[in-house]
Computed example of a mutant assay.
Amino acid sequence: MANASRQAAWEFWGTELKRRREDAGLTQEALGRRVFVSGGYIGQFEQAIRKPQLDVAVRIDEVLQTDGFFERMWRRLIGASPFESYFAAVAELEALATKICEFESLLIPGLLQTPGYAREVMLSATPLTSEEELDEKVSARLERAQIFKGPAKPEYWAIIHEAALRVPVGGAAQMAEQLDHLVALVRSRRVVLQVIPYAQGAHSAMSHSMKLMEFADTPPTVYTEGLFWGQLLDDSAMVKRATATYDLLRAAALSPKVSLPLIESAAESYRSS
């Protein structure tokens, strides 16, 4: 399903939500209370600005007694996404975020990956995938990075562990290209990037990835990911804990000014190997 037709389908989802909510005599705030989100969220669902998570779609069906309509349509739309089901909502939110703070321990964050690097990462995870499917996934990942080029680009801050610079994804030439890309993004002032050096030792968050997102008129969220799973949370207590963890990672990292020469040095090492 193409992006335009998928967006049209989400708009239909939102229109139906509004119609059936009003038929039930509920305001956005009243429905929000019953499905455990804010009334503002319900309004954004109805305008197809923000996409609900599956558990919210299920609760909407229960409250409005719609016999699984919203859950079934949600599953169809998420299934048509080029992203894994647990990540599809995150990709939608990245385009709405005013600020994104990200941490990766072993890989370059997806938003900062080159086509060749992204391809190697995806191929290593699914070595039997077809070329067509692989091309679609790589294109979808690169499309996400378009958020850096628009007038409403978010403030983006990434922290990576030094291991992400040293793991030779795709070989030396591929890594040199990827690290050169990071340097170019930093020097163009599109991103702020810090590196946690090996010398800092262990940190409790190093076995996970983390993405914090802030928005203009809705609460912030945190997304964490492991092998074949991901969790998107907007519970204020969890977001607060994640923010505190990110602050500790930032304190453990080299400054942006010191991190840049380390990335440049790693790129040069790959070029000369």
Results as ranks from 00 to 15, higher is better:
residue 3 N to E: 13
residue 4 A to R: 14
residue 5 S to K: 15
residue 9 A to C: 11
residue 10 W to E: 04
residue 13 W to D: 09
residue 17 L to E: 08
residue 19 R to H: 05
residue 20 R to F: 07
residue 27 T to N: 11
residue 29 E to K: 13
residue 31 L to F: 05
residue 32 G to W: 10
residue 38 S to L: 08
residue 46 E to Q: 09
residue 50 R to A: 11
residue 51 K to V: 14
residue 53 Q to K: 08
residue 53 Q to D: 10
residue 56 V to S: 08
residue 57 A to S: 10
residue 59 R to I: 03
residue 60 I to G: 02
residue 62 E to K: 15
residue 68 G to R: 06
residue 73 M to E: 13
residue 73 M to P: 00
residue 76 R to P: 01
residue 83 F to D: 10
residue 83 F to C: 03
residue 87 F to M: 15
residue 91 A to Q: 11
residue 93 L to G: 05
residue 95 A to R: 15
residue 96 L to I: 07
residue 97 A to D: 05
residue 104 E to G: 01
residue 107 L to Q: 06
residue 108 I to F: 04
residue 110 G to R: 06
residue 111 L to N: 06
residue 111 L to W: 08
residue 112 L to W: 01
residue 113 Q to D: 07
residue 115 P to L: 02
residue 131 E to F: 04
residue 135 D to S: 15
residue 137 K to P: 00
residue 137 K to G: 01
residue 137 K to T: 07
residue 139 S to K: 13
residue 141 R to N: 00
residue 141 R to Q: 12
residue 141 R to M: 08
residue 144 R to D: 00
residue 145 A to M: 03
residue 147 I to G: 01
residue 150 G to V: 14
residue 154 P to Y: 04
residue 157 W to Y: 15
residue 163 A to L: 05
residue 168 P to A: 07
residue 169 V to K: 01
residue 179 L to E: 00
residue 180 D to Y: 00
residue 180 D to T: 06
residue 180 D to M: 00
residue 182 L to E: 03
residue 184 A to V: 02
residue 188 S to W: 07
residue 188 S to G: 11
residue 189 R to Q: 15
residue 191 V to D: 06
residue 192 V to A: 12
residue 192 V to D: 10
residue 195 V to I: 15
residue 199 A to I: 03
residue 199 A to H: 08
residue 201 G to N: 02
residue 207 S to I: 11
residue 209 S to G: 13
residue 212 L to E: 00
residue 212 L to I: 10
residue 212 L to K: 02
residue 212 L to Y: 07
residue 213 M to H: 04
residue 221 T to D: 07
residue 222 V to L: 05
residue 222 V to C: 08
residue 226 G to Y: 04
residue 227 L to A: 10
residue 227 L to R: 14
residue 229 W to G: 13
residue 230 G to K: 01
residue 231 Q to E: 11
residue 237 A to E: 14
residue 241 R to M: 09
residue 242 A to C: 09
residue 244 A to Y: 09
residue 244 A to L: 14
residue 245 T to R: 09
residue 255 S to H: 08
residue 259 S to G: 09
residue 264 E to Y: 04
residue 268 E to G: 03
residue 270 Y to F: 15
residue 270 Y to R: 00
residue 270 Y to D: 02
residue 271 R to L: 00
